[in-house]
Design a protein around this nucleic acid. Structure first.
Length: 505
RNA sequence: GGCCCGUUCGUCUAGGGGUUAGGACAGCAGAUUUUCAAUCUGCCAGCAGGAGUUCGAUUCUCCUACGGGCUACCA
C-alpha cells in the first residue's frame, strides 16, 4: 500500500522540488513558468531546487537544447542547487545516465510481482490493437496481459534466447488511486482505467512515468509542481510509488498556458521560447512578473511584484485552476513599466550592449565593445528621452541607432510634407539661418530659436515642428525634438537640414 | 470512445449564500503636449446555459454545452 501523502512539511529545510524538462528544443514559456514556480517555492521555503534532464527518448533528445535551456533559465534568474552541471548528492541528473538505476528498480518490481516481462513486439501489439478495435468498434484498447500469464520456464527460455522484451507494471484490479492536488483538490481514479503500461522499453530505457517516479523517489522530491497536462499521468506514477512502497510527494498541477484562441500555446501564436523574448528586448524581471501572474494572484489589486515580493508572497494555495491565455499586450505593458522604473545607469548598460551588436557605424566605423566609449555619452543623453516611450530594449535600440545612422527621406510622411513644399522650404531655411547663428546649441537654445519661426510666420508651432522633425529625423514621430537635436549636435542638425532642403528642391 | 480537469469584463484575475461584483491590460473619451509616449481623470465591459437547495444564488449540488489534458516501447 502506498503511504499517505505528505500533507505536512516536516521543516522548511526539507523541501526539495525539481524542474524536469526534456531537451526537445528551447525553453518554452510554459515550462519557464513551471520552472519559476518551483524555484519560487524553493526560495520561499528555503528548500532545494533541482534541475533534472529527462532525456530518455533517444530519438528525440539532442545535446544543444540542454545548454539552451540552462542558459535561458539562468537568464531568467532561475538558478539550481543540483543539476547536470552543478552536480549534487543525488546524481546523475540526466536520466540517460541512470539506466542501471531504473533497471534495478524494474527488476525489484518483477521480483516482487509488481511488474512482468512482456515479449510482445510492437508489430504484435499493433495487430492486437487493430483487431480489438475492429471487434469493438471503438478506439479504446488496453493490453490484454498475454505475457503476464506466461509460464516461468517460458519466460526463462525467452530471456535466454534473447527475445527483446519490455517490462510492464502489473496494475492492481479495482484499486482506488487517490491523491489530493494542491490546486485541483481531491482526485481519485480507479485502477481499472489504467492498463499495464510499459515501464522499461525494449531498448532498456525507462518510459516517462517510470523514470519520473523513480527519480522523484530517489532524489527525495517532496513537492511535484508541474503542468496540468501531467494531472492524468499522476495516477500512473502513484501506482509506481505504491509498487515500491514509497511515500507520495505533494502534487501541485499548474493550469496550462494557452494562445489567444484557447489552444495550447504554440509557434503560430508568436514567440514561445524564452530566447525569443530575450532577443526581442524583454527584461527578465518583467517576464518573471508576467509569468507569475499566469495562474497565480496575490490579492485583488497588485499587479507589479519585485522578485523579493514574489518570493515573499508566493503560495501554492493561491494558484488557480483556470487555463490562462497568454496576453502579449500585457507583457509589453509590464516590460515598458519595468523599463521606466529602471535606473538609467542600468538601462545604459543594456542599451550599450545592444547597440554594439546592432551593426551600425559612425563615421564609417562599426560600433563595437572597443569603441563603445565614443557613443556612450550620447547614449547617456538619449536614455532620458526614450525611456518613457519604449516597451522593449529592441525598440530602444532602434531609436538609438537612428541617432548615428544616415538619415533616410523615403517614406509616406515625407511625401506628405512635400505636398506643401513652399512652406517646408521656407521653414527649413529659417531654421537653418537661426541655428547656424546660435552659440548655445542646447535644447533650450534650440527651442527659443525655433519657436521664433512660428511667431514670425504666425503659424502654430505644431506646423513648424512637423517640418523640422521631418528634416532631422525623417519621420512623423521622434523623441522630443529639442533634446534630440541637442544630442545630434549642431553640425549634424545643419547637415540634415541642408540635405532635407536639397531633397525638397 | 473511456478517464481526468476546467468555465467571473475581449484578456489576466479578486471575491464569495445578501457586494453599486473590485483591480490590471486592451479599447474609448478628456486633460497635458512640438510628434509619439508617459502621466492624470472618466467611460465601456463579466459571473456559459438549465434545473435543484434556499427567504435569497454569481457563490452550494446535479445536468447540459463548450474548452483542455491523458488514453504511445513521447515527455
Amino acid at each position: 500500500m502506498a503511504k499517505n501523502s505528505k500533507t505536512i512539511i516536516s521543516g522548511p529545510e526539507a523541501v526539495r522540488v525539481r524542474f524536469a524538462p526534456s531537451p526537445t528544443g528551447y525553453l518554452h514559456i510554459g515550462s519557464a513558468r513551471t520552472a519559476f514556480f518551483n524555484w519560487l517555492f524553493a526560495k520561499k521555503t528555503k528548500g532545494k531546487f533541482i534541475l533534472r534532464i529527462e532525456d530518455t527518448d533517444m530519438s528525440r533528445h539532442m545535446e544543444e537544447p540542454i545548454d539552451l535551456i540552462m542558459d535561458s533559465l539562468k537568464w531568467l534568474g532561475i538558478n539550481w542547487d543540483e543539476g547536470p552541471d552543478t552536480g549534487g548528492n543525488f546524481g546523475p541528473y540526466r536520466q540517460s545516465q541512470r539506466k542501471d538505476i531504473y533497471s534495478s528498480y524494474a527488476g525489484k518490481m518483477i521480483a516482487d510481482g509488481n511488474a512482468y516481462y512482456c515479449f510482445c513486439s510492437q508489430e504484435k501489439l499493433a495487430e492486437k490493437r487493430q483487431s480489438f478495435i475492429e471487434g469493438r468498434g471503438s478506439d479504446y484498447y488496453e493490453y490484454d496481459r498475454e505475457c503476464y500469464y506466461l509460464a516461468k520456464d517460458k519466460i526463462e527460455q525467452n530471456l535466454k534466447e534473447g527475445i527483446p522484451y519490455t517490462v510492464r507494471l502489473l496494475v492492481p484490479d479495482d484499486y482506488d488511486i487517490a491523491f489530493t492536488d494542491t490546486v485541483y483538490g481531491p482526485i481519485s481514479v480507479n485502477s481499472g482505467t489504467q492498463e499495464d503500461f510499459i515501464i522499461i522499453r525494449s531498448n532498456g530505457l525507462p518510459t516517462y512515468n517510470f523514470s519520473a517516479a523513480v527519480d522523484d523517489i530517489l532524489m527525495e522530491i517532496t513537492h511535484v509542481i508541474r503542468g496540468e497536462d501531467h494531472l492524468s499521468n499522476t495516477p500512473k506514477q502513484i501506482l509506481i510509488y505504491k509498487a515500491l512502497d514509497e511515500e507520495l510527494p505533494v502534487f501541485t498541477h499548474l493550469p496550462m498556458i494557452h494562445g489567444a484562441d484557447g489552444q495550447k500555446l504554440s509557434k503560430r501564436h508568436g514567440s514561445i521560447s524564452i530566447e525569443a523574448y530575450r532577443d526581442e528586448g524583454f527584461l527578465p524581471e518583467a517576464l518573471r512578473n508576467y509569468l507569475a501572474l499566469l495562474g497565480w494572484a496575490f490579492d485583488e489589486k497588485t499587479t507589479v511584484f519585485s522578485s523579493n515580493d514574489l518570493i515573499n508572497k508566493f503560495s501554492l494555495k493561491d494558484i488557480n485552476k483556470k487555463p490562462a491565455k497568454f496576453d502579449y499586450e500585457k507583457l509589453l505593458w509590464l516590460n515598458g513599466y519595468y523599463i521606466r522604473q529602471m535606473p538609467e545607469k542600468e538601462l545604459e548598460k543594456l542599451l550599450a550592449k545592444r547597440v554594439t551588436s546592432a551593426d551600425i557605424s559612425i563615421k564609417g566605423k562599426n560600433i563595437t565593445d572597443k569603441n563603445i566609449a565614443a557613443v556612450l555619452p550620447a547614449i547617456k543623453k538619449i536614455i532620458p528621452l526614450i525611456k518613457e516611450r519604449v516597451k522593449t530594449l529592441k525598440e530602444a535600440r532602434d531609436i538609438t541607432v537612428k541617432f548615428f545612422e544616415d538619415i533616410n527621406y523615403e517614406n509616406d510622411f515625407i511625401e506628405y510634407i512635400k505636398s506643401n513644399k513652399e512652406r517646408a522650404l521656407g521653414i527649413t531655411e529659417d531654421a537653418l539661418s537661426l541655428l547656424k547663428n546660435i552659440d548655445d546649441f542646447s535644447h533650450q537654445g534650440i527651442e527659443a530659436a525655433l519657436r521664433s519661426i512660428s511667431e514670425k510666420r504666425n503659424i502654430g508651432f505644431r506646423k513648424v515642428a512637423e517640418i523640422i522633425r521631418a528634416a532631422i529625423w525623417g519621420a512623423r514621430v521622434s523623441p522630443p525634438m529639442f533634446g534630440t537635436m541637442e544630442i545630434l549636435g549642431k553640425d549634424t542638425c545643419i547637415a540634415r537640414l541642408d540635405s532635407f532642403m536639397d531633397m525638397l528642391s
